[in-house]
Structures are given as structure tokens and as C-alpha cells.
Design a protein around this nucleic acid. Structure first.
Lengths: 171, 171
DNA sequence: ATGGATAGCGAAAATGATTTTCAATAGTCC
DNA sequence: GGACTATTGAAAATCATTTTCGCTATCCAT
């Protein structure tokens, strides 16, 4: 692929985003199809990374470090460069979504159609993250972006606070 | 100060957050007061950084690089370490808010009371950021967090999309 | 299937934002 | 005014992520 895009420079394929993209979760062939359609190659490493997300609970988020670790535990050796490259590609293809959970590193999770999108409640003290859904969010995001002529890609609502257990810890 | 906390480890002072904190924007003495109350010292560097935010439009966000640059242009020499340290302190004191605009670096802006909080619409292609307000957002954030026993600190709603001009560029 | 073109891999070096170290300086408080 | 110690600047250190480069493996056409 031409230029080694950083995540947010996904110009070429951005328009391909398909909110109704089917559950790749089942079809093992699908990854190859999706990759090849855009000129990327299917590799076992990419499949293994995607497997990791698919075997976890939907909405479970992982960072590069965790992916590396979990693959090691499964006996798979993989380099960080490969992990990062795979993550970028899969974000571009709409398979994964990048999350900014404000911890100095990026998290990824399976992408879900807009209407099912969930959001995050982060405890700034212990770093715990809870998920929640709220349709309002998506509506606001979509109306806000269309009213300004933006084509919507995704939206993230992140609430920062202190979780109950940390509150008691802190008195 | 005991430990050089990174931003999200603001345990000690977290509980001090006061959404109704007054307009420090006018009172030149106020920064000193707020700092001293928490055992921090008032310094000209901190004042200059805060001035930068206060002289810009409310809701204008800056990163460390831009702060450094703008101070240079004003004839002020300041080191990056000082800038970063000052930003952390002011976030802890509730004067500034840290933003995750997904560009590999952190932005800061004047903190505003919850009910006036605004959110961001980011063009993932050109990086342009537009602001908007929506009371719903704050309501959802606050109800979500209280229903789980979290004490709310702040919330960020970030919408990613492609702006009109980039859309036409991309055909 | 086979082979050529080249995307992708791993290892190591490079980057870039942010953080820390340390000696010198400067607020705070008595 | 002086002691105590937080803060500063410069330089080195971190840390996540990105890039480079030689080698391998996937894809497409034959």
C-alpha cells in the first residue's frame, strides 16, 4: 500500500465505511475478502489479531501491548510492528474502532454499527472502564455532523469520574 | 509536591473539583490563591500559560507545542518541562481540561462548568475541529455516572467525520 | 499449479510527545 | 531576612508508536 497511513489519515478508504457491515465474527473467510477488496493481503497474523477480538466479549477493548501479551500466551510470537500495522489496516477497513481512553495509549475494539455503539465511563483513579449504551448519543452525533455537512464516521462519548470503590478509598 | 503525577492520577485533589468555580478569567490574583490553597506555588510561567488560554476565545484548545510557540512569539522563553508541569497542575486544580482529540498529542482548554461544556467534531482528514454544545450530552453523562455511583468529573463527546471541503477533495 | 511482482513480516533503529533528573533559583511562611 | 522546599531549565530518559530494511509469503496472471 502506498503510504503508511497513520490512523486518522484514512482518506482513501474512508468512504467505504459501512455501518451495516455484517458479522465478520463468524465467517473465517470474510477477513480475506475484506482485505483483498482493498488491495491488502490476508495473513495469519492479521487473522490471529482479529480472532483475539472476536473471542473476547463484544466491546472488549485491547491495546497493542495486551494483544502482544495475549498472543504470546497462546503461543503465538508476533512483532509489535505487525500488530500496529494490522490494527491500522483493520481500522481503515471498518473492522475495528480506535478508542481514546486517555491513558497515553490507544485501545481498539470490534467496530459495531452506529446504532449499537456504546460509550465509556472511565475511572480516572483506578483506570477501570465501564461501558454503556445510549441512543441519544448517536442521534446527537449524527444530527450534529450532518447539519455541518460532515460525513459521520463514528463518535465517542467518554465520561470521566471516580468509581465507587475508589471514592471510599479516597475517603 | 510528593509524586509527579501524570494527569489521570489526580487522586489527591480530585475531590476538590468545583464545577461552579468562578471566572478566574478576570482576577489576576486568583491563580495564586488557587495554587497556594493546594500547596502549589505561584510562578510567572504558570500565569503566562494561563493568560494564553484566557486571551484566546473560550473553548480554544492548545497543545504544549503551540503554547511554547505562542509564548516565544510574545518574547517569553519557557521550557517544555515547565509547560507540561504547569498544564498538569492546572488540570488538577480544575482550571484547565485535557482533551483527547486523537492526534497523538494532548490539547488543553479552559475548564468550563458542566452545563456549558462543549464537544468536538473532528475532521479525520484535515484535522479541523469544530465545537458544539448540547445539553443532552451532559445529562446523559451525569445520569450514567450517578446511576453507577461514579462521581462525575467531566465528559467528552467527540464525533469523527469528514468535513465538507475534504469530502469534495476526495471526490 | 507456477512464477513474478510486491505487500507484509520481524528486528532493530528512529521518532515524537511527554516525563524525569539534577543543580540552581525563587516563592512562602515564619 | 532567612530557611525550607517547590519550581525552573537543560539535558537525558521514557514510552508508545512508526519506520527502515532485507527476507518471506500472498496474490494474480499465466
Amino acid at each position: 500500500m502506498a503510504n503508511p497511513t497513520n490512523f486518522f489519515n484514512r482518506s482513501e478508504t474512508t468512504m467505504e465505511y459501512d455501518p451495516a457491515s455484517p458479522e465478520l465474527n463468524q465467517e473465517p473467510e470474510l477477513l480475506k475478502t475484506v482485505l483483498n477488496k482493498e488491495g491488502f493481503r490476508f495473513t495469519s497474523q492479521r487473522q490471529k489479531i482479529l480472532d483475539l477480538f472476536q473471542s473476547a466479549a463484544l466491546g472488549h477493548h485491547l491495546n497493542a501491548e495486551e494483544i502482544h501479551q495475549q498472543l504470546l500466551e497462546r503461543g503465538e510470537k508476533i512483532s509489535f510492528s505487525t500488530i500496529y500495522r494490522a490494527l491500522h489496516v483493520m481500522v481503515r477497513l471498518g473492522l475495528l474502532q480506535e478508542l481514546e481512553l486517555a491513558e497515553g495509549r490507544k485501545y481498539y475494539e470490534l467496530n459495531t454499527p452506529f446504532m449499537d455503539q456504546h460509550h465509556h465511563l472511565v475511572c480516572v483513579h483506578c483506570g477501570n472502564v465501564e461501558e454503556f449504551e445510549d441512543a441519544t448519543m448517536t442521534q446527537v452525533g449524527s444530527s450534529e455532523s450532518t447539519s455541518r455537512g460532515f460525513s459521520l464516521l463514528n463518535c465517542q462519548f467518554t465520561v470521566y469520574g471516580i468509581c465507587p470503590s475508589c471514592q471510599s478509598l479516597l475517603g
